[in-house]
Design a binder for these strands. Structure first.
Lengths: 205, 205
DNA sequence: TGTACATCAGTGAACGCGCGTTCACTGATGTAC
DNA sequence: TGTACATCAGTGAACGCGCGTTCACTGATGTAC
């Protein structure tokens, strides 16, 4: 952020970080290109040396977000150890952890209204995140008795949906007035009940 | 919408309907007060005879949305008939049905960034919707063996979260690329698995 | 039944604002000789 | 080691735009006598 003469040094990343700080404070709609430039100590026009425009800047933030997201889930999955079940649960928890630790990225990814197809790099990153999760679901799926095994993509979608819903409704200032329970607990127990319903957790534990 | 002279007749509701149409087409951010006025055949300034401003118009739409939402869920619940379980499931389905049939209301309620506390009427309407759902959960809760019965508010939150997640991720143009399954099916099966996990549905059915 | 008048829902012009974006430019940096 | 020059990351001023909002006004409506 510290300006050191005429040339900035690494304005591109500085702009991204300035935008992240603004999004965190005011949401993706409140953020403006001019503010980001200003807070990076630079004229709005300078932004155009590094990005095609406002949307391109947001898209790049979303892209970086999906990369981090995928990394985080992949790390939580840990190659399926110690068990497919534990690894899957950890992956689900990573969803909320990501939303907590990188709220601005999360907003750029899911609440900025950006299209994931506008930009091939963004699309690729989003797809990668999706695949990390799909793989965890696939591995877990092998442990369900074949007869009543739903498609892995389906229960991946269920868990994704519940995670997303918990974040949107209870881990932000939004509608649910105030969260009736800590979001982490809510997600933990929700996934637990769901997996029990799949027959993957003993009905007693 | 048809203009019939100097006085409009029922401009207030005409503006709301114009705004709904705009939100449906371009999202709550794309909608502007001027557009709404124009499409109701009226000057932007006329809006101020009926609303305190842009935010107040959106708040009123959200309020009407919560009223419809509560009515819909209440109707689906049907006094707990034919069984607590069936009524609860129907209430969950009503969530998605509402999002489908009243997409603009839904967006005003959950995606416009409006605060539910800014306006007492809005707050009251939102609270009413929450209570309809909480009551259904409470009734169902009685059928879970007391020992391992989670708080009703908790599994109400789980279902609410999953419903919201399904809508946001798979029932709109947004992130999930394209829905892997029809949202209705996704929600239906998701709730089914979850309720089985609670021991409310026989493990076989 | 007709007239005078109060009420109030609209008009139309204007405002200030901040946005994203463009343009010709200039100053700093790094490289070739 | 020093100089000339190409490159390019920034400036600063300006743009057009559309927004939400205000204001004094005017035309239509409805009511009292």
């Amino acid at each position: 952020m510290a300006k050191q003469g005429y040339h900035h040094g690494n304005l591109r990343q500085a702009l991204i970080e300035a935008a992240l700080a603004l999004i965190e404070r005011q949401g993706p709609q409140g953020f403006t290109l001019s503010d980001a430039a200003k807070s990076a100590g630079v004229t709005p026009a300078a932004v155009y040396r590094h990005f095609a425009g406002r949307d391109d800047l947001i898209a790049e933030i979303a892209r970086q977000g999906f990369e981090i997201f995928a990394d985080l889930m992949d790390h939580a999955y840990n190659g399926g150890r110690p068990s497919a079940l534990a690894a899957f649960e950890a992956t689900g928890r990573a969803y909320l952890a990501f939303a907590r630790r990188f709220p601005a990225h999360y907003q750029a990814m899911f609440e900025s209204g950006i299209s994931l197809n506008a930009n091939p790099d963004l699309h690729r990153a989003a797809e990668r995140a999706r695949l990390v999760f799909a793989r965890a679901a696939e591995a877990l799926s092998q442990h369900i008795p074949a007869g009543r095994r739903p498609p892995a993509a389906m229960f991946a979608a269920h868990i994704w949906a519940m995670s997303h819903g918990v974040v949107e409704l209870f881990a932000r200032g939004a509608p649910g007035a105030r969260a009736p329970f800590p979001p982490e607990e809510l997600l933990e127990t929700g996934i637990g009940v769901y997996l029990r319903g799949l027959g993957l957790v003993p009905p007693d534990s």
